[in-house]
């Protein structure tokens, strides 16, 4: 089976999982104890008001009917109307999603760019001071709450040094007219990076630490393989061994860990958005939960899961593409 068919096969496999997620989010949202209508209308609404709102949001129908309607709506790309914002959920998500996406992709970029060289150097200089330092950094990285790193960065770089802004993000592709103090596209890009720096470090540290750990242990593992010993015996230069023999073979588990870290990166993004007051998907789901806005809870949960699923599938495909040993048709053992 070729890579295209494998990709297709992975997408087909994702359909039942996605259906399961839809079902779970629907059941979750419809089990909310507080009455959303009550939340909307205040303490003493009239009977007629309650009835009209119930009819408007379809709450007067039986559960299975609502479920079928929900599935049909999703198939049409309609996630319902937010009770809190009184706009379609999809509009709200479309508005917030780019910022979260920007934050997460930049954090991964930061994590990979820092972690891969760090892991390789750490393995190459095993048990030397550089290695110890790298291991301490990665241990602290996986053990520190990301939101606290965010708070400390704000403390140092915003309050003490005044070098960075503390709130929100600016999208690099925004219109210069909408960004304060920017007149050209370059200005917008600069402002965007300026705003992005602190949240990216806060969110990316965990990923960076996790990737460093795995990169180091994989490099050590590969460097102890027979073919490396053989290459050394043949007098191949150490640098060539590292680059040609070890590095390539050590990257497969790194790809896996990047996929596995995605769920925690999404969780981290929710916290980091709260710390830096970024109006992305994270603050959207929190608003939805605080206000028992169940169409919005369902919508955001669904989009987060879809995002996660797509990420995992992309990781799998990358893995299969990079590693010729993976037989595309094989099922999990």
């Amino acid at each position: 089976m070729g890579i295209a068919r494998y990709t297709l096969w992975r997408l087909v496999q994702a359909v039942p999982v996605l259906l399961g997620v839809v079902t779970i989010t629907f059941l979750l949202a419809n089990a909310i104890p507080g009455d959303p209508v009550q939340t909307m209308l205040g303490p003493s609404p009239s009977q007629a008001e309650v009835a009209s709102i119930r009819a408007k949001y379809g709450l007067d129908q039986p559960l299975w009917q609502r479920y079928v309607n929900y599935l049909l709506d999703i198939a049409r790309g309609d996630l319902g109307r937010s009770i809190y914002y009184e706009t379609p959920v999809t509009t709200k998500i479309a508005e917030r999603f780019p910022k979260t996406m920007l934050l997460m992709l930049s954090s991964y970029l930061f994590a990979i760019v820092v972690a891969v060289p760090l892991g390789v150097i750490s393995a190459k200089r095993r048990n030397e001071p550089t290695d110890h330092a790298a291991r301490v950094v990665s241990l602290i990285g996986v053990s520190t709450p990301s939101f606290w790193i965010g708070l400390m960065l704000i403390l140092i770089f915003v309050f003490k040094l005044g070098l960075f802004p503390s709130t929100n993000l600016v999208l690099p592709w925004a219109d210069p007219a909408d960004v304060t103090g920017a007149s050209t596209r370059i200005d917008v890009l600069g402002t965007a990076l300026h705003h992005l720096a602190l949240p990216v470090v806060a969110l990316g540290t965990l990923q960076m630490a996790a990737i460093t750990r795995i990169e180091r242990s994989e490099m050590l593992d590969v460097l102890s393989q027979d073919y490396v010993t053989l290459a050394r015996a043949y007098g191949v230069r150490e640098r060539t061994i590292l680059r040609k023999h070890a590095f390539r073979n050590a990257q497969l588990p790194v790809i896996t860990i990047i996929g596995l870290q995605l769920a925690s990166a999404i969780g981290g993004a929710i916290l980091i958005e709260a710390v830096f007051s970024i109006n992305g998907m994270g603050t959207l789901i929190l608003t939805a939960i605080y206000n028992l806005d169940y169409p919005l809870i369902m919508g955001t949960t669904l989009v987060f899961s879809l995002f996660f699923l797509v990420g995992v599938i992309l990781t799998d495909i990358t893995y299969a593409y990079v590693d010729p040993r993976v037989s595309y048709g094989s099922k999990e053992v």
Partner: peptide, 15 residues
């Protein structure tokens, strides 16, 4: 398939 914190938040809200 539901990201960890998203699932925890939804469950806590629902309960």
């Amino acid at each position: 398939s539901i990201p960890f914190l998203v699932l925890v938040l939804s469950l806590v809200a629902v309960l």
